[in-house]
């Protein structure tokens, strides 16, 4: 089911994002937040697959079996981060509290002109990382994205914040890989979300939160070919207006020997997944893959 998200319409994020943008602009965060309650209920009721995925995930991370209350909280957390994303992109950053952890290693390498890869996930708020933790530090940043699936989000993003939209680097064909290599050589920090597989990705099945999940091997294999330092990063939403950004060095250089390529790849993907698991235990409602992620 690792590619199940591709079959789901973008409805969840785009519809909500567009509505939240309009509303936040006219009514502000507090009023909009009230509306997130009925919106969340609507999405839970009309998305049995998302509900099932939420329950499956929560059962892995919470101490108690999840009920409606936990599922609501999970969806609400997602809706809240989307609303905040819109506010951030519109430049309305006042009132947000962001605690940044372990960013120095990344900043130091970037200031030396060393290109780095940032592996994120659909976990918490990547925009919070992008806007506050990274851009405020003046890093040269590009975010890789697959344009085909994200076109609507991209156009909305461009309308809200052209500067942020300009950091997006579409990845569609083999020639874009050359561009990626050039960006890293020019000292860019390049981020990508490494938890969802597309049909073109190589997959590897790893232990993750007590189960088995198929994750894309491509990001790790790219990192090994590119030979740059690799960081994992998450922007956790902690309630209210509080966020936490964490950066962890995964490897100075990922080396995958040809003789044991799959084993070495699996090991690194598992380390990436272990980092995600670590943060999901701290902030369990931050997992935003609402499709069946684990193998039965």
């Amino acid at each position: 089911m690792s590619q199940a998200w591709l079959r789901q319409p973008e409805r969840g994020s785009v519809g909500l994002l567009r509505f939240a943008a309009w509303l936040a602009h006219h009514a502000g965060r507090n009023a909009t937040r009230l509306l997130l309650y009925p919106i969340t209920v609507y999405y839970i009721l009309t998305s049995p697959a998302g509900r099932g995925a939420s329950r499956d995930y929560l059962a892995r991370v919470l101490a108690e079996p999840p009920g409606w209350r936990q599922i609501f909280r999970h969806f609400f957390c997602f809706a809240q981060t989307i609303l905040d994303r819109v506010l951030l992109l519109a430049g309305r950053t006042d009132g947000f509290e962001l605690a940044v952890f372990d960013r120095d290693g990344l900043l130091e390498r970037a200031r030396r002109g060393q290109g780095c890869l940032l592996l994120g996930a659909h976990l918490g708020s990547f925009d919070m990382l992008r806007l506050l933790a990274v851009e405020q530090a003046g890093l040269k940043l590009k975010i890789l994205m697959r344009p085909d699936h994200n076109q609507m989000i991209t156009s909305l993003l461009a309308a809200l914040n052209p500067a942020v939209a300009a950091t997006l680097q579409p990845i569609a064909g083999p020639a874009d890989m050359l561009r990626l290599r050039e960006l890293l050589a020019a000292g860019y920090v390049v981020g990508l979300l490494a938890d969802r597989a597309t049909p073109e990705d190589r997959l590897v099945t790893v232990d993750f939160l007590g189960g088995q999940a198929a994750l894309p091997a491509t990001p790790i294999q790219l990192a090994s070919r590119l030979g740059v330092p690799v960081f994992t990063c998450v922007g956790l939403y902690l309630g209210g207006r509080r966020y936490e950004a964490h950066f962890d060095l995964l490897a100075e250089q990922i080396v995958i020997p040809r003789s044991a390529a799959m084993d070495a790849t699996r090991l690194w993907v598992e380390r990436y997944a272990a980092q995600l698991a670590r943060y999901l235990k701290l902030a369990p409602y931050n997992w935003f893959n609402f499709y069946l992620f684990w193998q039965a």
């Binding site: 083999p174 890989m177 050359l178 073109e200 190589r202 491509t218 790219l222 070919r225």
Partner: peptide
């Protein structure tokens, strides 16, 4: 796939002494 593209680019650069570049007008 995309990983292979990188491998080929590296091999071309080693063997033939020039870089395949993304801004090449004919790169597709």
């Amino acid at each position: 796939d995309s990983i292979d593209a990188l491998e080929i680019a590296l091999a071309v650069s080693t063997t033939y002494g020039f870089e395949l570049r993304s801004d090449d007008a004919n790169n597709h």
